[in-house]
Nucleic acid binder design. Structure first.
Lengths: 328, 328
DNA sequence: CTTGCCCGGGAAATCGATTTCTGGCACGCT
DNA sequence: AGCGTGCCAGAAATCGATTTCCCGGGCAAG
C-alpha cells in the first residue's frame, strides 16, 4: 500500500501538495496533473486511519440495533446503508440483543473509533449517551428517555388506530391487543391507538383485560394469542403491535383451528414474503427503510455541521397495504 | 475524551508506561496501580484510531455480503457478529447487491481502513482481492474462482440430493429443479445434487429441460415455477435451490390452485417464521449461522498469525428439518 | 571487587495523513 | 520606485497511541 510520501516523491512535490490535490484545495494545474499521474501509477489509496486520526472523525457510522435478524431492522439497516454509502460513509453494524450493557459497550467503541456518528434504535428505556462525548446521534424507531436528540419514528398511534380500524370495518366487536413491554414508547403508543380507535367506534374505553403485554418476540405473541383464544368471553379480533409477535399470533391461530381465522388478526409491521402470509390478515406497514434513510439523512446533516435544534421526525407512511380479506 | 498523555501526567509516569499497563507488559505493581487509578479517574478509553495507525490494523472486520435483507445472510451475519464480538472485534456491514463493482469498492475501503480482515460472500464468479494487499480474507457461502484462500461453505451437493430425495420419497417421479445463475458454484452444485439423486433413483440422467436457471431472487423463482406448472408433460415436484426463489415458487403454487401442492416443493434454505410456511413443504436447512461463526473463527485465527495453508471447510449440517407432509 | 546481564521505565521515533505556518514570488497601487 | 497584498507550495507540527532504543540500577557470577 503506497503512502502519500511515495506519491509526493514520484510527483516531485511535497506531501502537503498531494493532500491538497486529493482534497480539492487549489493547486497549479501542472503539479496537480503530476500528482494525479503519480497516484494513479502507484494505485494510491489514502489511509483512512491516518486521516481519521488527524481529522478526528472517520467515515464510519455506527448503526446500533436490537436485532439484525428482525426484518424490520434489516430493512431499516438497508435504508441507512444505502443513504450512508451514497455520501461516502460505511456502516458498522452493532447488534445489542436488547441488552443495554451491550448497547453502551458499542457506544464506547463508536467514540473510541472516532466514528462520524451513531444511529441508535435504543434497547431499553434509558440509554447512556455520555460516552459519545458530543458525537452526533440520531435515535430511530424508539426515542430514548431523557435525551433531547434528533429522533425519527413511525406514527405508532396512527398505526395502532389503523390496525384496529381494519378489524372494526370487518365487523369485529371484541378486539384485543397484544403489545410490547410496558414503558417502551412504541409499545404504549400502538396500544393507545388501539384504545383510541375502539373508543371512537364504541364510545367506551376497551375492557382492560383485552390489553396484553408481551416481549415483542415470536413466542410471546404466540403464547398471548393462545391465551386470548382460550379466554372467555371470546375475542373476535386481535391487534398485534409488531411483526414478530404477529407471526407468533398467526402461528397460534393456525394451530387452533376453528377459533379465529387469520382475518381476525391485524399486524403492525411487515412480514417477509407477504405471499406466504395467510390471506385475510390485515397488515399495517411500517416505513422501515424510510426510517433508516431519514435517520441517515439527519445524521449526515449533523456530521456536516448542522447545529439547529434537535428535530423529531414522525413518518406516517403507515396507511398502506392492508391485505383484503378473502372474498366471500 | 482523555488521552494517554493526561493519564500519564496524572499518574506521574510516561505515556509508554500507561500503554504497557493497559496492554499487559510487565510493570511494577505500584506504578500499574497508579496508572489504573488515573485511567479510571479520567474515564480513559484509548483512541482506536491512533492504535490502528500504529499497529497497522484496526479491530474491525468487514463482512461483505450480497444482500442484508436475505434471511440467510442475516443469520450468517449474526454468527459472524457474535463470534467477532466475543473476540473484541466489531463488524462492518457491506452490502454489495450482487454488484462486483460495489464489492471491490468495499474491499478497497477495508484496506484503507486497515481493517483486521474480511469475510466475503462473493458477489460474482470472480472477485478482485488485489486491493486487499495480503490482508486476511475468508470466503463464505461461495468460493471465489481462482483464489486459494480459506473457504467455508455448506455441502451444496448434499443439500441438493437431500431436497430431491425428500420428493422422491413422496413418490414424485418428474422432478424439476430451479437453480441460480449458471457459473455460480452453489447454484451448480445444488443442481448437481438434484441430478445425482435422480440418477441414483432412476438410473437415468434427468430431462435437461427440467433444469431451470433463475437469479436466486423471489421473482425469478415465482416466474420459473409458473412456467414449470404450465409446461407439459406436467411436473410433480420442484426442487428450488435457495430460500428467496423457494418463497417465489410457493407463491406461484399458491396462486395456481390445483396445479401442484406445497408438498411437491422442496426448498434448500430456511424461510423465516416457518410457522407461516405452508405445511408439507420440504425444507433442507442450511447452517447459515454456523457458516458465519466458522468463517469468523478462521479469520480470527489468521488475524492471530496462523500461517497454515488455506483450508476449505464444508459444513454439512443440512440433514435437518424436513417438514412432514400433512398426514392423509 | 569488578564485570556482565537482566529488567524496568523514560525519551523519542513511528504510523500516514491533514493543516497550520512561513517564505518567496508576482502583481497592483500610490 | 517602493510597499503592501495575495497566492501557492514546501517545511514542520499535529492527531494519540505503540514500540523501539537506551540508560541506570540491582543482582549473580567470576
Amino acid at each position: 500500500m503506497a503512502t502519500i510520501y511515495e506519491v509526493a516523491a514520484l510527483a516531485g512535490v511535497s506531501p502537503a501538495t498531494v493532500s491538497r490535490v486529493l482534497n480539492g484545495t487549489r493547486v497549479a494545474e501542472d503539479l496537480a496533473g503530476r500528482v494525479r499521474a503519480a497516484a494513479e501509477e502507484l494505485d494510491f489509496t489514502p489511509s483512512r486511519t491516518a486521516r481519521s486520526l488527524r481529522r478526528r472523525h472517520s467515515e464510519l457510522i455506527a448503526l446500533v440495533i436490537p436485532d439484525i435478524e428482525n426484518p424490520f431492522f434489516t430493512a431499516l439497516a438497508r435504508g441507512v446503508e444505502d443513504t450512508a454509502r451514497a455520501a461516502g460513509y460505511s456502516v458498522v453494524l452493532c447488534n445489542t440483543d436488547e441488552d443495554t450493557d451491550r448497547e453502551s459497550t458499542y457506544l464506547r467503541i463508536a467514540a473510541a473509533e472516532q466514528m462520524a456518528g451513531v444511529i441508535l434504535a435504543p434497547a431499553g428505556e434509558t440509554s447512556d449517551l455520555g460516552s459519545l462525548a458530543g458525537r452526533p446521534v440520531v435515535a430511530v424507531d424508539r426515542s430514548p428517555h431523557g435525551h433531547d436528540i434528533d429522533t425519527v419514528t413511525a406514527d405508532s398511534i396512527g398505526a395502532g388506530r389503523a390496525a384496529t380500524a381494519a378489524l372494526l370495518e370487518r365487523g369485529r366487536t371484541r378486539i384485543a391487543c397484544i403489545t410490547g413491554p410496558a414503558g417502551v414508547d412504541t409499545s404504549e403508543d400502538r396500544a393507545q391507538g388501539w384504545r383510541d380507535a375502539i373508543e371512537a367506534a364504541t364510545g367506551r374505553t376497551p375492557d382492560p383485560s383485552l390489553l396484553r403485554h408481551a416481549d415483542f418476540r415470536f413466542d410471546g405473541g404466540r403464547e398471548e394469542a393462545g391465551r386470548l383464544l382460550r379466554s372467555l368471553p371470546r375475542v373476535d379480533g386481535i391487534v398485534v403491535t409488531n411483526n414478530l409477535m404477529g407471526a407468533g399470533a398467526l402461528a397460534a391461530v393456525t394451530a387452533a383451528p376453528g377459533s379465529l381465522s387469520a382475518e381476525g388478526i391485524a399486524i403492525i409491521g411487515d412480514l417477509p414474503y407477504s405471499a406466504l402470509v395467510p390471506a385475510g390478515v390485515a397488515i399495517v406497514s411500517l416505513p422501515a427503510r424510510e426510517l433508516g434513510e431519514e435517520a441517515a439523512r439527519l445524521l449526515l446533516a449533523r456530521i456536516g455541521g448542522d447545529a439547529s435544534p434537535p428535530r423529531r421526525v414522525v413518518l406516517d407512511g403507515v396507511a398502506s397495504s392492508l391485505r383484503a380479506p378473502i372474498p366471500g
